[in-house]
């Protein structure tokens, strides 16, 4: 099967609508297809990665721990747009620390999140074969 570059573009906050959760479900299933996978978080989508989420008060499932498992699925290119963080008063420190183990480098633990500015992200998107926008 051909290998294509798949980009999952996440634009929405995690619980107000179901898009974030159902995007993550596609990522997890898609990981089995051995494609070149990237995720990007822009706009309110950056809230999906905020650490310490507690959803007891809204009666919904907290799915944010699943992001920490993406490294095990070899999903380790996670782009976060710098301007989107800044516009919301957030920094990288507010986000989960997502890592993956590089088996070609003695299983060294490496950061999955790549902080990029808007024009850098535009170049990344331009380079994709498939962009699934959620």
């Amino acid at each position: 099967m051909a290998t294509k570059k798949f980009m999952y573009l996440n634009r929405k906050a995690p619980y107000g609508t179901v898009y974030a959760l159902e995007s993550l479900e596609v990522v997890l299933i898609g990981a089995a297809f051995e494609q070149d996978v990237s995720l990007a978080f822009i706009g309110d989508g950056v809230y999906q990665l905020v650490k310490g989420q507690k959803t007891d008060g809204i009666g919904m499932k907290n799915f944010s721990p699943t992001f920490a498992a993406l490294g095990d699925y070899e999903v380790n290119k996670i782009y976060v747009e710098k301007e989107s963080l800044e516009e919301r008063g957030l920094t990288l420190e507010d986000l989960q620390h997502l890592v993956w183990e590089d088996e070609d480098d003695d299983y060294a633990e490496k950061d999955s999140i790549r902080l990029v500015n808007r024009s850098e992200l535009a170049d990344v998107l331009d380079d994709q074969d498939i962009v699934l926008s959620f």
Binding site: M1, K4, F6, E25, I29, G30, F33, I130
Partner: peptide, 11 residues
């Protein structure tokens, strides 16, 4: 059917 059908459609 499953989400794999979407990925396959992309490929």
């Amino acid at each position: 059917s499953g989400l794999g059908q979407l990925i396959e459609a992309g490929i």
